[in-house]
Each structure stands twice: as C-alpha cells, then as structure tokens.
C-alpha cells in the first residue's frame, strides 16, 4: 500500500541523516591542510614557449572565441620573419571560470592550465594579467611540439624544409 510506502519513506531518511551525523567529516580544512590536486587540475593559465624558445602563441583568436565568459582578448601582429604573434594578450582572471576550453581550442599548445589557483585579490585590476605575466620560460605539457614545424609556410624553417615537405617547385619547369 502506498501509505505504508509513504510513511516508510518519511521515517527512513531520519535514520540516514542520523547515521551521517556520526560519520567522519570529509571537509579538507584548506589553508592548514592542502589537498592533492588531480594531475589534470585546471588552475591559472600560462602561455608556453616552443622547444626553440619562441612564443608558441600565434594569436589566432581561437581561445578568445572558445572562451564562454569572454575573458581573453588579444591583438595579433606580424614579426619580421613572418611569424604571427600576439602584440598584446590579456586574460581577465576575475572573469575566468577555469573551464579549460581555451586550452582545448589552442592549436599550438600555447595556452595551458597549471595547478596554481591562489589568485584571490582585493584589487580587481590585479587579476587582469598581461602577456608578460602569462608567458613562461618552458614548454609545459607537450614539450616537443612546435607548430611551425607542422604548418608549412616557411616561418621556423625555410619553405619546403619542414619534415614531410618537398623542396619548392620550379613553376617555370615544363618537364613532365
């Protein structure tokens, strides 16, 4: 009968909650005790460099397009050797929700997450980080990847010199 089920359903939770009261607390008391972060924890973002020590970021705007809270803004520009890079790059961490979608969108593995998360600040302007602060001196994850060795447009290596490329063709050659 449903009335017995209802009564049982009303009484039973009391037992569950009572039992819970005597279970150990699961809270980690943060400043004193530090939890161990998961290996793929998503904390503050960094801009990494490629194995040659050059900035990986090519300012393609994909992270800013992927960002659901629009906290990334930048301006791309061109270096003398044709390399595309960010003239300025700004992340507003007071808006960032650490979802990591930017790192998924990044085609050059430039923007990466770290395990660092202690960025609370009383001055909102200090949570706005510029490229100089975001750029690190290592490759982060994917230490071997260099975008320009895969994109054959003659920036990191001369045209046709990347692995898997033929030498530039002679367009005036008519030999079969």
């Amino acid at each position: 009968m449903s009335i017995w089920r209802d009564i049982k359903g009303t009484i039973e939770p009391f037992w569950i909650t009572l039992r819970n009261m005597f279970r150990p607390v699961v809270t980690v008391e943060y400043p004193e005790v530090r939890t161990e972060l998961a290996p793929r924890y998503r904390g503050r973002l960094i801009l990494t460099r490629d194995p040659d020590g050059q900035e990986r970021c090519v300012a393609c705007y994909l992270c800013s397009a992927a960002c659901p809270v629009d906290c990334i803004s930048m301006q791309a520009t061109e270096a003398e050797d044709g390399r595309r890079y960010a003239a300025w790059f700004r992340i507003n961490f007071s808006r960032c929700i650490f979802c990591g979608l930017c790192t998924e969108a990044c085609p050059t593995m430039a923007i990466q997450v770290t395990g660092f998360f202690e960025m609370a600040n009383r001055n909102p302007l200090e949570t706005v980080w510029e490229k100089e602060e975001l750029l690190v001196d290592h490759c982060g994850q994917e230490p071997d990847y260099n975008f320009y060795h895969h994109a054959g447009i003659g920036v990191a290596a001369a045209r046709g010199e990347n692995p898997g490329e033929d030498k530039p063709v002679d367009v005036k050659d008519l030999m079969p």
Binding site: G152, G154, R159, E165, D166, K167, P168
Partner: peptide, 20 residues
C-alpha cells in the same frame, strides 16, 4: 607522402600570397 611547396611572390601592398 610529402607535401608540395611553392615560393611566394610579393604582390604589392594590397594582396598577400601564400601559395602552399
């Protein structure tokens, strides 16, 4: 297989070429 590559031309101040 390998990719074919080209050398680009300088087409003046308005149009940039990337033949690859």
């Amino acid at each position: 297989g390998n990719k074919r590559t080209y050398l680009n031309q300088d087409l003046g101040p308005f149009v940039a070429q990337e033949m690859n």
